[in-house]
């Protein structure tokens, strides 16, 4: 199967890549290419970012900056990322397809595709993640999901604040190679909870009301967790699709949110 493509371009600078991108709505930036075949059938120009060293993962005292062309395998095997919130981002990457796919799929391609079944969105959401664009500058991942920008831009990197905290991540899928039926990420940092649910089958989101409820409690018992789950199910839209029924997803939310909160509490104590 051939992609109907007029030209594959390796620009010399990001400015040149950006200009080419704006030139024509049929010009695309190439991420890793893992889903290229399934998403684009024809293009005028495919613009490579391979010349710009965007595959680096830079770690300093309070920040991890992942270049947009870093592969999911690079992220999965990075020691600093594995040590952040019990390695929830490493685990999220580890559960995606096989190593051969993770060697080409990039974080930039994954983020920009806004895939509802994405396994990494829930993990990124609970870690105070920001995206660095060439023209737009820095915006939070939450804003990026809430307000899909109509402007065309190039994602340069993904920034995650390094904080001491405990994390929990769970993907539920029928088989190891399958897309998620649902996925969860929870972190407890500075005694506050962050909870995200994805592939519901809608794109991942933070459970603000459930988090606010939990963060107001002086003591968390099973009763408070049950109440938080009820609040979460009121605010996060859960439906059926070919992978799972709505009822099954709700059952998974009840099980894994409870398990996740208990796990982060146990690990924190």
């Amino acid at each position: 199967m051939v992609l109907i493509l007029n030209e594959y371009v390796n620009p010399k600078s990001i400015e040149e890549a950006y200009s080419l991108f704006l030139e024509n709505r049929k010009n695309y930036i190439k991420g890793g290419g893992a889903w290229l075949k399934l998403t684009i059938k024809s293009a005028e120009k495919l613009i490579s970012l391979d010349n710009f060293n965007l595959d680096k993962i830079i770690v300093n005292d309070d920040l991890i900056e992942i270049g947009s062309m870093a592969t999911l395998r690079q992220i999965e095997t990075n020691r600093d990322i594995a040590n952040l919130y019990n390695g929830i981002l490493s685990k999220a990457c580890h559960n995606i397809m096989g190593i051969n796919v993770r060697n080409i799929a990039t974080i930039g391609g994954t983020v920009m595709a806004r895939l509802a079944f994405s396994d990494i969105y829930p993990a990124l959401l609970v870690m105070d993640t920001t995206l660095v664009f060439y023209k737009l500058g820095e915006i939070s991942l939450v804003d990026f999901i809430k307000n899909p920008t109509k402007e065309r831009d190039i994602l340069l990197s993904v920034k995650i604040k390094r904080k001491e905290g405990i994390g929990f991540y769970k993907k539920v899928a029928t088989t190891a190679l399958d897309f998620s039926i649902i996925n969860f990420a929870i972190v407890k940092v500075e005694n506050k909870y962050m909870i995200s649910v994805g592939s519901t089958p809608y794109i991942a989101s933070l459970a603000y009301n459930a988090m606010e409820f939990l963060n107001k409690q002086s003591k968390i018992t099973s009763l408070e967790i049950d109440e938080a789950i009820n609040i979460l199910l009121d605010e996060i839209k859960v439906s059926s699709n070919t992978r799972s029924s709505k009822d099954y997803r709700i059952g998974l939310v009840k099980t894994y949110i409870k398990r996740g909160i208990k796990k982060v509490n146990a690990d924190a104590s």
């Binding site: 992609l3 594959y8 290419g33 893992a34 495919l46 490579s48 391979d50 060697n103």
Partner: peptide, 13 residues
């Protein structure tokens, strides 16, 4: 040296 699925890698890349 790294395994990749050749069905999804463009030759031009």
């Amino acid at each position: 040296g790294k395994p990749v699925p050749s069905c999804s890698v463009l030759t031009a890349s």
